[in-house]
Each structure stands twice: as structure tokens, then as C-alpha cells.
Amino acid sequence: MIRLRAKISSSRGQSTNISHKVGTWSFSAFVILLLTVIFFPGLFAPYDPLELDVINRLQAPSKAHLFGTDEGGRDIFSRVLYGTKDSVGASMVIVLMASGTGTILGAIAGWFGGRIDFYLMRMVDVFLSFPYLVLAMALAASLGRDMRSAILALILVWWPSYARMVRGQVLSIKERLFIRAARTVGASNFQILFWHIIPHTYRTVGVRASMDVGYVLISLTGLSFLGLGAQNPSPEWGLMISNARSYVLASWWYSVFPGIAILLVVSLFIYAADRFSGAER
């Protein structure tokens, strides 16, 4: 026991390595579970999420319907599981696209500097100067009221913060000696960017992205709640809560369970990202 502790504390590198691994493992396990539910909701859901069963409408939670049923008699548990794809899956896609675009544009701005940098960063400033949710609402509404336009709107709203963060990092990375060394062996601008500079931003972008999945989920379900995203009869969580508004007093389960799902996923993503970033240091 003593030996073990000595081993762990003997080098700081080793002990951070262990907590790093715990953070990474718990995070990956959580993401894998979510992905399974997203791609194979049928494995867990007892009912078809869209099948109406009007006789059993607004049933309280029971053995047959774990989370109760909605005004159409549809099983809320099944709907929450199927809705993972529209809510969490879409949020992941948004973050992936936004962080990818932001990283590439930010890296280009930071590396080339000059006029490219100026125009890209002014564009970023314009996006960031609006309250993001208001901008997302305006964009989603003008692009047409469906899921696709909500996703597009959120990607448009989210990439600038990545661009700014990555640009800052690139400014310091590009002064490092191994970049000079790459130049002296003849690497082109794009080879240096994609082989040497962008890989060095993966860590911070990764931590930021995992946290952002939570924030994007709130915004996306918010848009759906306002009728700017998913449309009926999709089992999207925000839309379900929106539908449940008229039944809040009589049928608490209808709005509470999708709400808990949102709360759970958002806080888990933010907590995991926090652990993750702590371990990175």
C-alpha cells in the first residue's frame, strides 16, 4: 500500500496520468452509451414513439408506461429515448461542424495574419456582438421553421468563438521552433497548418467542444420549444415540453421527464468536460 502510494506520488506526471485516464474513460463511456441510444433506440424503447393509443392518453407513470403517456397515448419513455437522436445527436453534429469550421478558419487567420486575419476576425466580431440565442432565433426563423434550419442556425452562431480561441493559440504555436524546423525542410503553409499547428489545438478544442454539447443542447431544445426547430410529431425533447405546457398541472410527468433528460445530459457533459480539462492540466 505504502509502496503503491509512493509510486503514485513519486512523479507528478504519473499521478496526473491516472486522473487523466479516469476522466477520459468516464467521458468516453458516457458518450458511447449516448451514441448507442442515438443509433439503436429500439434496443431500449418498449414502444413505437409515434404510435397513437388514444384510449391510454395521459396515463400516470406505471409498470406498463415507465414515464407515463402523452395526450396521444404515446409512451413518454420511448419518446424520450427516440428523442435522443434529435436532441443530443443533433447537438453533437452542431458542435462537430462548428468546432471544425471554427478551428480551420481560426488557424488560417492566425497563421496567415494580415488582411485574411483582419477580415475573418471582423466577421467573428459581428457574430459575437449579438446575443447568441437571439441571433440563432432570427436565423432559424428566416431559414424556415424546421430541424435542419435550427441546426444550421446554431452552427452559424457557434463557430466564431472557436475561431477566436484557435486563432489565439495559433499565434503562440507559430512562433515555436518546430515550425521553423518544418519550414527548413520545405513544408508548405498548408502542410504546416494541418500537420503541425492544428493538431496542437486538439486538446483545448476537444475540452471546449465536449462542454459545448451541453450548451448547444439547451439552445436547440429552446429553439424547438419556441417552435423554431423540430416539428410535431417528432419526439424532440424541447418540443415535447412545449406540447406539455397545456397539461402541466394535471399531468406533471409529461413535461418533467423530458426536462430531466435535458438536465441530466447537459450537466453530465459539462461535468465530464470539466473533469477532462482538469485532467489535461
Partner: peptide, 11 residues
């Protein structure tokens, strides 16, 4: 170059 560690990409 002078710094052997810094002139290689750590990743």
C-alpha cells in the same frame, strides 16, 4: 537548431 526538444513536434 539549438534546442533539441523544441525543434521536434511533440505530438
Amino acid at each position: 537548431f539549438q534546442h533539441p526538444l523544441l525543434s521536434l513536434d511533440s505530438r
